[in-house]
């Protein structure tokens, strides 16, 4: 992988382009005029503190929240995104709360991940499931267990695996490392890197800025509802303002864990 190719945001075909996206809760603007771009095969991360509007942004792009602005996904502009339509067009969100089907088995959760694909006539979920199991061997062991009985890390794996069942063009991950033990976080980020190798474009929202900047090609910093900074991830990781606000001083073991 050549860092230059992924670092530049210009040469690639754009999968997602969000223009002037604004979300208001009543009179409060939670997100104002956000502009972001995700190129094909890229990992783009949005980092920022709690309450900056990261989850709001993903929910609005997906159509879970009402918004103003334009979402150009895969060459078609959506004025008002509708969740089911976005899923049908190849966008998938792994939400912060995972939103698993707790009283159903791991395997049923995965099968439902391919619901929209199945409806549009692609009956290949058995094969996709095999790929997901190869990526997450742990899920295969737990296939007949109820999703509600899984550990935190397994739940996250299941949430990602379920989203992958739809064979998305763009995978949006909301805080995939939230509440997980460091070793599991490392595993999750390893898999995010692996997914890019398989050609999935990823929009990653993270509080764990260090790990996110390490895996991503391009990054945005979101602060109080506005994009404060953007640039190639490596560049941002060296930016003194980012270091001061999000990375802090050197925690060596953190760095090890996130590679």
């Amino acid at each position: 992988m050549n860092a230059n190719i992924h670092g530049s945001n210009l040469i690639l075909k754009t999968v997602l382009e969000v223009r002037d996206l604004t979300v208001s809760y009543g009179k409060v603007e939670a997100l104002s005029n956000a502009n972001i771009k995700v190129g094909e095969g890229q990992i783009v991360t949005v980092i920022g503190p709690n309450g900056a509007g990261k989850t709001t942004m993903l929910s609005a792009i997906m159509g879970l929240l009402e918004s103003r602005g334009k979402v150009d996904f895969d060459g078609t502009i959506e004025g008002v995104p509708v969740v089911e339509r976005m899923v049908a067009r190849g966008m998938n969100l792994v939400p912060e709360k995972r939103e698993l089907f707790g009283e159903m088995t791991v395997e049923d959760n995965l099968v439902l991940g391919a619901f929209q694909r199945h409806r549009s006539g692609h009956r290949d979920h058995a094969q996709t499931m095999e790929e997901v199991y190869q990526l997450f061997p742990r899920l295969r062991e737990r296939r007949s267990q109820l999703a509600g009985t899984l550990s935190g890390g397994e739940r996250q794996m299941l949430a990602v695996g379920r989203a992958l069942m739809a064979k998305p063009k763009l995978l949006m991950l909301d805080e995939p490392s939230l509440g997980l033990a460091p070793l599991i976080v490392r595993e999750i980020f390893r898999i995010i890197g692996e997914l890019r190798r398989r050609g999935v474009s990823i929009l990653l929202v993270e509080q764990n800025a260090r790990a996110a900047l390490q895996v991503a090609d391009y990054a945005y910093v979101l602060e109080t509802g506005e994009i404060a900074m953007e640039g190639p991830a490596r560049q941002l990781a060296d930016d003194p303002r980012v270091i001061e606000a999000y990375l802090g001083l050197g925690g060596k073991h953190q760095e090890m864990l996130s590679t």
């Binding site: 969740v83 439902l112 929209q116």
Partner: peptide, 23 residues
Amino acid sequence: TLYGKALRATAINRVGARLMGIS
């Protein structure tokens, strides 16, 4: 059946079901 499971999924977690494209 897939549609039966989709109904159960909607009953268990409406947001999760929408994210799978089950309207």
